[in-house]
Nucleic acid binder design. Structure first.
Lengths: 225, 225
DNA sequence: TCAGTAATTAAGCGATTACTTAATTAACCG
DNA sequence: CGGTTAATTAAGTAATCGCTTAATTACTGA
């Protein structure tokens, strides 16, 4: 017979409703989408090219995410811009990441080998960063792609996307400390930036996490027009 | 060809790790298991009988939950007792429920029609409950099954499982207010208890959520030996 | 109104999932 | 030791999922 949990009644329906969120976040692809959207809204095309798959594929995943209420969209000419349905969605995504790392030794090892082990150096907390910037000791660089910087960045940060960093080293005053940040605690952009900067003999460190966490914690931000 | 996201590399592997948690909570059945376990540990048999399915089915779901690290087990004679892997798992489960309710109008309507509409009466907050009990104005009854009461309950509460409430009405002093609580904000046990008590002419109200939330908020609890 | 582009939808496929029943394993107990 | 019971594992199934390619829709602008 194999009836696949098609029970009825209050309890069954309630758990089914809760599971909608679970199903939405059960696919690595969709999590990658959520992660990108937590940096700011994007078109389907942009998501497809950043993730490296087809628009069809992304469109179908976005459909699933919207079914669960996690994302919403806004049409503008030919383009459909998708964004997270609210700050609570971003918070949930962060909580889920944190739990996964807490529970999985494999995840911790993975992160260790790609982040902590390479960049065994200094990481800077939010308030510490603020202090260093305000005292004029440090400058902050945002190494994410420019459009993410434009969608919102740490107040006072300058944008130097990682790809451009090699040719733009001259812009960085040698006497100041540099703090790089990117998308979040598991993003490699700032790790690679710090490696590069240190090879140049600069005093460089990484923000402990990324822009979404900084904003969520209520620290000062700026948006481009 | 249809390769089902078998990419390799840091990012792909990281999202795959995060998705393990998502997959674990993508099934209504497994959520029901988590919900029961958040009241206290249980054997496979007890879960099966409470949920109304076979031990085989539950055992397989528990296997999936353990794979993701959400539950752990303890063997005692013939029995295997399962419990949540930590308070952070319970917290995540609550966060997920909250998000699902925030995002889904259907979920809200369901809850409204089964809880708010029936019991359109008073609900009591944690601190308010504490105040009323300490001032001697109210008594608190735990209407969950006895074994859940034994696994931990609100300090000062007495156990009257919902099934037994009709024949134990005499135990409740008529001049006091009664506050009933159960498993959580979406559990119907206390709703039905309050209905019953009011029909008897008693002054009855519901705690706004349940025991796990009370404990998580740091309010005083008691465990049986 | 037609060409061009972004996005969605349809169709088809292999892999995975959730359940069932049946067989097996593990621990206890007389 | 053999019987009993809790739990797990195996095998088989229908349903669902995730991806691909191809067709369709929605909007713009010449």
């Amino acid at each position: 017979m194999t009836k696949q949990t098609s029970q009825t009644g209050y309890k069954a329906e309630l758990y089914r409703q809760f599971a909608r969120v679970g199903r939405a976040v059960s696919s690595p692809r969709r999590l990658e989408i959520l992660d990108l959207l937590s940096q700011g809204e994007r078109t389907v095309e942009r998501l497809a090219s950043e993730i490296g798959t087809t628009m069809s594929n992304i469109s179908q995943h976005l459909h699933a995410l919207r079914e669960a209420g996690l994302v919403e969209s806004r049409k503008e000419g030919l383009f459909v811009h998708y964004s997270l349905a609210g700050e609570n969605v971003a918070e949930f995504w962060r909580a889920m990441r944190t739990l996964a790392v807490d529970l999985s030794a494999e995840a911790r090892e993975l992160i260790h080998s790609f982040i902590n082990e390479r960049d065994s150096f200094e990481t800077v907390e939010h308030s510490e960063l603020l202090k260093r910037v305000e005292s004029g000791r440090a400058i902050v660089i945002d190494v994410r792609p420019l459009h993410e910087y434009d969608a919102g960045h740490i107040r006072g940060a300058i944008s130097i996307p990682l790809d451009e960093l090699p040719k733009r080293l001259g812009e960085i005053p040698g006497e100041l400390e540099v703090v790089a940040y990117c998308r979040g605690p598991y993003c490699l952009l700032s790790v690679e930036a710090v490696e590069l900067l240190r090879k140049q003999g600069l005093h460089a460190a990484r923000l402990v996490d990324g822009f979404p966490e900084w904003r969520a914690a209520g620290f000062p931000i700026t948006k481009a027009d």
